[in-house]
Design a protein around this nucleic acid. Sequence first.
DNA 1: GCCCTGACTGCTA
DNA 2: TTAGCAGCCAGGG
Length: 119
Amino acid sequence: MQPNFFERVYRLVRQIPRGRVASYGQIAALLGHPRAARTVGWALSALHGDEVADVPWQRVINSAGRISISRADLSADLQRALLEEEGVEFDLRGYVDWRRYGWEGLSLPEIEALWQDRT
DNA sequence: GCCCTGACTGCTA
DNA sequence: TTAGCAGCCAGGG
């Protein structure tokens, strides 16, 4: 029995290396649901308390390489600041260069192994 | 069980 | 890496 969708999203996001970024669609695809990008975003928006500090949510941006966040407590400015702190650069228009900072993702075996781990 | 919402995406113009 | 719009999926009420 695999963890529920939310839990899987969190585990996968935690695999994104510091200084790299992934898109919602990419995360969804790795979970086996290429069209569930919105649900991934929703899962991240559901983060609260300690989970926010535990999951590198800031490393997930939209497919255009841009931040698209609209929450009162977690602003786009904060996300950008966190990423810049990790070494990710934004161009003048606020876009991240996928060629430089894009995450390659994990292989299928690596992903399945995540569902086995406990923690 | 139905309906709405959402930190998205791909297609069309 | 436009702008606008419909489609997708999982949770919550």
